[in-house]
Amino acid sequence: MDHAIVARSLTKRYGRAAAVDDVTFEIEAGEIVGFLGPNGAGKTTTLRMLAGLVRPTRGSGEVLGERVPGDSLREVGTMIEEPSFYPYMTGRDNLRHAALLHGGVPGERVEEVLAFVKMEAASLKRVRAYSQGMRQRLALARALLWRPRVLLLDEPANGLDPVGIAEIRENLRAVAKEGVTVLVSSHNLAEIEKLVDRILAIEKGRLVFDGPLHRLLARAEMLTYRYALRASDPETLTRALRELGLSPERKDELVEVEVGAERADALVSELVRAGVEVIEARRESDDLEDAYLRLVQADARPA
């Protein structure tokens, strides 16, 4: 298979601090990959290096088989951080300017992408009057203007309301169906969960996970869950948990405890068998965000 995007030991240092540290991954053509990480983890810097905007301190990036920066970047569309436009121009004129700058974009393509993001009418207004959602949609339209084969998207749903998020998600799904390779970062992990097949997770500049979405979830399952329990007698509950080999923490009426994923489901029934009257048992939800956070926390612990 052809690699659409390759990062080889990508490293970016600012003084002694490493924003991105020895990040290596490969993305096949047509893949949709989620790029996860908390703020400051190095997602945006990695995307900037792949887009040829920032020079790596060490390592290299490749797009469509060519080292970055190179002519293959002409086949890349990006939305990196806050969308930016010339505020004194209309949305349509901003797209026309970008089309002229890139070259080889037919005039009707501007109308096509505006229709795709449902911005035909609003595109006649000056950008300074746009809402955040309109800017995000216009930025996506601009990223698609020259029919890119690779999309690098940094927080594309940032600042959008739920309707806007759903619209962006639908747009990206439609783009992906056309075979475009997409690397999308987000802190809205629920959105990535519904969009991507594979996850790259980055923490403190280092890649901590690279694999299919289901493997991230499975790996997280191998870690621990945190339970918040309430019983008619908290003392009995605490004693029973200790007898099960766990380390409970008393917080007023609640008792919190971490339990391995392999026995998490059976915890309540074990407590009942031990004679504890369990009134309430809350487990952390097992969506991607929790899985990711548990993964990062586990990797951050000293061995």
């Binding site: 040829g52 905007l53 970047l73 990006t78 930016s84 436009f85 890139h102 020259w146």
Partner: peptide, 9 residues
């Protein structure tokens, strides 16, 4: 700049 240099690398 990030927009300009992506449209015209």
């Amino acid at each position: 700049w990030k927009t300009v240099l992506v449209a015209q690398p």
